[in-house]
Design a protein around this nucleic acid. Structure first.
Lengths: 207, 207
DNA sequence: AAAAAAATCCCGGAAAACAGGGGTTTTCCC
DNA sequence: GGGAAAACCCCTGTTTTCCGGGATTTTTTT
């Protein structure tokens, strides 16, 4: 029996997943958790074979959670579940140790297939995910940029529509500093204006 | 028996909803559809009492679909299902005739409760939705701005990171015209820079 | 304790966006 | 069909952002 746990904050979705998993005799559902903290606690008392993990959780990002789980329990396989097909999101999850990536618009049996595939040591990507990755060559694929606390702070204020000067005033730093951060954000996101930074940040749920 | 149909593009979610609806003896599930077009077709051959409708569909926006369905079949009650708790989204759905709004992180029985409530002629909002609406007084609530074809086009190009001049070139209009549209977008969204426009548009899934 | 990363500050010129004005053509409603 | 509103188009001056370099001081990590 393959032991599976589900990490997902939408109860209706959990309901659907339970249903799907129940339909397969070789899979045993060992509990579900609505956020990152509770699953980390639960793992201390024993690990499943596979975690089905939503990428958007209420407390911490799926990318971070995935990395932490794999660091502590390297044998646990993780399948990412997501509504995003943005390449950097997919890429970041895989880099953080996920063995599979299945979009939420996938059919139920793709989940089952994914579980068996990764138990066989394969990496499983659902068809839409493959489609999304196909166009870019893996080498050039950008991950979600890692931004610092301060940068995030400034990003959020920019998102609120504040100008450089207003941000400087609010954080008690000079406008030059704000501009530096702005510049670094553009650099990290690989774009050349703040609008695009905000758009990407919004897509990656960084705001 | 209350006849219900589900409009939702995530099969796993549909699975969960089916499960929940099956558990109630007074509700009968009359089919599910993955996009707006197919549900409009299906409605021509007969209407249910209630439609559970996802706000984010692959083909048309839930807001539009809701309006169209209500225009043709005013007796059909609609419950919006959504992951967003943004006020303008909620407001727009309700203005377009939805009788209920339930967030996807709601518990299964909230769906059941919502169905019965709206069949009694009430309006049903789940607790998180009420929370989201509470802070703003209803009078001032902004709906999602209605933008024109051209404006949307320009919005998308801005979202791609193009400058005014690049957009002008691409659409064969002058930079001044682009700036006018930019201005109108800011006006309609009630903000004073493009970055905020893009952020909001992204939240409302207008890009 | 050394090295790396983050956060802070600085400049000047070029490029773009913004604000506030105007006008013409569609579209929609009565 | 006619009037109003919306959509679309254009212009000028001012403000803000962007780009290209810098530099110094804290943290954090190894």
């Amino acid at each position: 029996m393959i032991k599976v746990i589900v990490v997902e904050d939408h109860p209706i979705m959990v309901e659907g997943l339970k249903n799907i998993l129940r339909s397969d005799a070789g899979i045993e559902l060992n509990g579900d958790y609505g956020d990152g903290k509770s699953v980390l606690q639960a793992l201390e008392k024993g690990q499943p074979d596979v975690i089905l993990m939503d990428v958007n959780l209420p407390d911490i990002s799926g990318v971070t959670l995935c990395g932490e789980v794999k660091k502590k329990y390297e044998d646990v396989k993780i399948i990412a579940l997501s509504i995003h097909d943005e390449q950097p999101v997919i890429h970041s999850m895989l880099q953080n140790g996920a063995s599979g990536y299945v979009l939420k618009n996938a059919l139920g049996n793709e989940i089952i297939r994914a579980i068996y595939a990764i138990m066989d040591g394969e990496e499983y990507l659902c068809s839409s995910t493959k489609e999304a990755l196909k166009n870019a060559d893996m080498e050039l694929l950008k991950a979600i940029p890692r931004i610092t606390r301060r940068e995030k702070e400034i990003l959020q204020l920019i998102g609120k529509g504040l100008t450089t000067m207003q941000i400087a005033d609010q954080l008690f730093i000079s406008t030059h500093t704000v501009e530096s951060h702005r510049k670094n954000l553009m650099e990290k996101f690989g774009v050349n204006n703040t609008t695009s930074v905000v758009k990407l940040a919004s897509e990656y749920k960084l705001l």
